[in-house]
Simulated scan of single mutants.
Amino acid sequence: MASSVATTWFQLLVLAEQIRVGEENLRIAERTERIVDVRYQNGAASRTELLRQQTEVLNQRAGLVPVQLQYRQIQSALAVLVGESPLGFEVESTHGTLLAMELPEVDAGLPSDLITRRPDLAREEARLQAADANVEQARTALLPTVSLGLNAGLSNNNLLSLNNPVETAGWTVSLVQSLFDGGRLDAQQAISESQQLELLEHYRSAILTALQETDDALDRVQTSQQREALQATVSESAARTLELTELRYREGSDELLTLLDAQRTLFQTREQLAQLRLARLVVTVDLYKALGGGWNASGDDAGG
Rank of each mutant, 00 (worst) to 15 (best):
A6P: 08
W9R: 11
W9S: 09
Q11N: 12
L15A: 05
A16L: 02
A16E: 06
Q18F: 06
I19F: 10
V21P: 10
G22S: 05
L26R: 03
T32M: 12
E33I: 10
E33F: 14
A45Q: 06
A45L: 01
L51R: 09
R52W: 11
Q53N: 04
Q53V: 03
T55Y: 11
V57D: 03
Q60R: 15
R61I: 05
A62E: 15
V65M: 15
P66K: 05
L69S: 13
L69I: 14
Q70A: 14
Q73W: 08
Q73S: 14
I74E: 14
Q75T: 07
E84T: 02
P86R: 01
P86E: 02
L87V: 13
G88Q: 02
E92N: 10
G96P: 03
G96F: 04
T97Y: 06
L98E: 06
L99W: 11
L99T: 06
L103P: 04
E105N: 13
V106G: 00
D107N: 13
A108D: 12
L110H: 04
L110V: 02
P111A: 04
D113T: 11
L114N: 06
I115N: 01
R117T: 09
P119D: 10
D120S: 10
D120Y: 08
E124K: 15
L128S: 06
L128F: 05
A131W: 08
D132K: 10
Q137R: 11
A141E: 15
L142P: 00
P144L: 03
V146N: 00
S147W: 07
G149S: 00
N151A: 09
L154W: 09
L154S: 10
L154E: 08
S155K: 01
N157C: 08
N157I: 15
S161G: 09
P165R: 02
P165D: 01
V166K: 06
A169H: 00
G170T: 15
G170F: 11
W171H: 01
G182Q: 10
G183A: 07
L185F: 01
L185V: 00
A190Q: 04
A190S: 07
Q195E: 13
Q195I: 03
Q196T: 04
E198W: 11
Y203G: 01
S205P: 01
A210D: 06
E213C: 05
T214Y: 07
Q226G: 11
E228G: 08
A229V: 09
A238N: 10
A238C: 05
E243W: 06
L244G: 15
L244K: 15
L244D: 12
Y249L: 09
Y249A: 02
R250F: 12
R250V: 13
E251R: 15
L256Y: 00
L257K: 12
T258I: 11
A262S: 07
Q263M: 11
Q263F: 08
R264I: 08
F267H: 13
Q268H: 10
R270K: 15
Q275W: 12
Q275R: 14
R277N: 08
T284S: 10
V285N: 05
L287H: 01
L287F: 03
L291C: 03
G292E: 00
G293F: 00
D300R: 05
D300W: 05
D301C: 12
D301T: 14
D301H: 14
G304N: 15
